[in-house]
Simulated assay, not measured.
Amino acid sequence: MQSLSHLVAIVGPTATGKSDLAVELAVELNGEVVNADAMQLYRGMDIGTAKLTPAERRGVPHHLLDVLDVTETASVAVYQQQARSAVEDVLARGRTPVLVGGSGLYVQAVVDDLTFPGTDAQVRDKYEQELVRVGPAELHRRLRELDPVAAEAILATNGRRIVRALEVIEITGRPFSANLPKPGPPRYGAVLVGLDRPVEDLDERVDRRVTQMFGAGLVDEVRQLANVGLRRGRTASRALGYQQVLAELDGAGDMATAAAETAKLTRRFVRRQRSWFRRDARIRWFDAANPALASDVRTLLTT
């Protein structure tokens, strides 16, 4: 099938089958995949992020997988530059770029005019300490007073984003919402495809996936990464599954508890992802359980 001259973005919550669909579409549309999962940026974080194996990638080139060490902090601003460069390179070679992932801010950084102000370590540290002391709800209340538009766009449970918004407001003297993307057509003529399932199905799939991850050696993967500095990584050490295993390695060593906590927090994360993506009216939604999913999406993209 002929390549498309625009970007395809496959988005939605965890455990909907986005990666498999992205590969299938890339095979059919002469495409290449661009990763938009923040934790799949990390080398060695394979089992716990459900990263496709080389065999599962079916020979399709994948961009922005395995580009960071676990000690490095992921930056959306840096990702934006690298992902846009990858998309533009794929288009320039006459192939179809397929952006795929459930990290909403990373997807938005590619398809929307999202700008990233500078940072001030001292100011950020102040708000991070407050986050620990009073919790995200109180900081979100403060953000709502300073910048109601930003507060509406940022979930009250997302402590890191709230801290970032307060930091930007303090160091720029401008509302954080001034940096948020304005509604409009997505970059690269992107067609946004959303995959979803009923919440009960997603919960079951998450539980099954977590069981499979622990059975496939997640604990050994975390041990190996701990040896190369995982605990020092501000972003990687907080990844779902990795944080819970680290806590048990440093504590009672009860991996059944780590698995149960990972599943519980992942189910919660799925709900936040759904809330994030459902706010974007440009996304065309598909039932990920439909056997005709790939065919239906292909029809959307080629007609």
Rank of each mutant, 00 (worst) to 15 (best):
L91M: 10
D120E: 08
G101D: 08
P183C: 07
V87Q: 08
A156K: 06
M213P: 00
T16H: 05
R58V: 03
E138W: 09
N227W: 11
Q2M: 07
D66G: 09
P186L: 11
M45P: 06
D287K: 10
D250W: 12
D20G: 11
D113F: 00
V107A: 05
R197V: 13
E28K: 12
V149T: 07
V70M: 14
D125F: 03
A259K: 14
D280G: 04
R142P: 00
E138G: 00
A9H: 02
L180N: 00
A259H: 07
S275C: 03
T302M: 01
H62F: 15
A15Y: 02
K51W: 09
L225W: 04
F286N: 01
R57K: 15
S237H: 11
P13R: 01
P97R: 02
I47G: 01
E72A: 13
N158F: 04
Q273A: 09
R174L: 10
R174Q: 14
A150D: 05
A236D: 07
G59F: 14
A55G: 04
V110G: 01
L202R: 14
R209H: 08
L64K: 02
G189A: 10
D69S: 14
P61S: 01
A260G: 06
R142Q: 02
I162D: 10
L7M: 06
D220P: 00
K18I: 10
